[in-house]
C-alpha cells in the first residue's frame, strides 16, 4: 500500500466512522443494493477495497455517484458495518478536490421540469458538488 493510499484510507475511515474489519463478508449489502447493476464496484467491494487500501480505484469509479444513500445496506448489515457511509466518504474525498465537482450549478436549468422538487436539486448539489 502506498503512503498516499494509507492517508486516503485513514481519512475515509475517520470521515465515515466505519470499521471495515467488522465485515464478515456475507454479501448482504450487495444482495440488498437497489443500484447494484449501475455500479462497477459494489457495496461489499467498497468495504473490502477500503480495507485493502485500493482507494484510487474507488475514487475513479462512477460507482460513487450511483449510490442512492437509501441506507438499506446499513440497516440490513448483520455486523453494523454501514457500507453506504464508506461510499459517501469516498465520494466526498473526490468532490472536495479542486475542480472535481460532479455536478455544477450550470447543469441545473437543463434538469428542471414543471414538477422537479427543489429538494432534488439541493440534494444533488450536496451529493455531487462541494
Amino acid at each position: 500500500m502506498s503512503q498516499k493510499n494509507d492517508r486516503a484510507k485513514e481519512q475515509i475511515l475517520k470521515m465515515s466512522g466505519v470499521n471495515p474489519l467488522k465485515c464478515m463478508r456475507c454479501g448482504k449489502c450487495s444482495g440488498t443494493c437497489p443500484s447494484y447493476d449501475e455500479m462497477e464496484y459494489h457495496p461489499h467491494q467498497f468495504v473490502y477495497m477500503v480495507e485493502t487500501g485500493e482507494i484510487d480505484k474507488l475514487m475513479q469509479s462512477p460507482s460513487i455517484y450511483k449510490c442512492l444513500s437509501c441506507f438499506a445496506c446499513v440497516d440490513r448489515c448483520p455486523r453494523g458495518v454501514e457500507p453506504a457511509k464508506l461510499v459517501e466518504a469516498v465520494r466526498l474525498t473526490v468532490i472536495r478536490q479542486k475542480g472535481m465537482n460532479h455536478m455544477t450549478a450550470d447543469s441545473i436549468p437543463a434538469l428542471l421540469d414543471d414538477d422537479l422538487p427543489q429538494q432534488a436539486i439541493v440534494s444533488a448539489m450536496r451529493k455531487y458538488s462541494k
Partner: peptide, 21 residues
C-alpha cells in the same frame, strides 16, 4: 425500498427503474 431519490438528476434511467419496481 428507494424510489431513486436525488439520483434522478444524474442518472434518470436508474431512478426510473427503482420507481417503476
Amino acid at each position: 425500498e428507494c424510489c431513486g431519490g436525488y439520483v434522478v438528476t444524474d442518472d434518470p434511467e436508474s431512478s426510473a427503474k427503482k420507481s417503476a419496481a
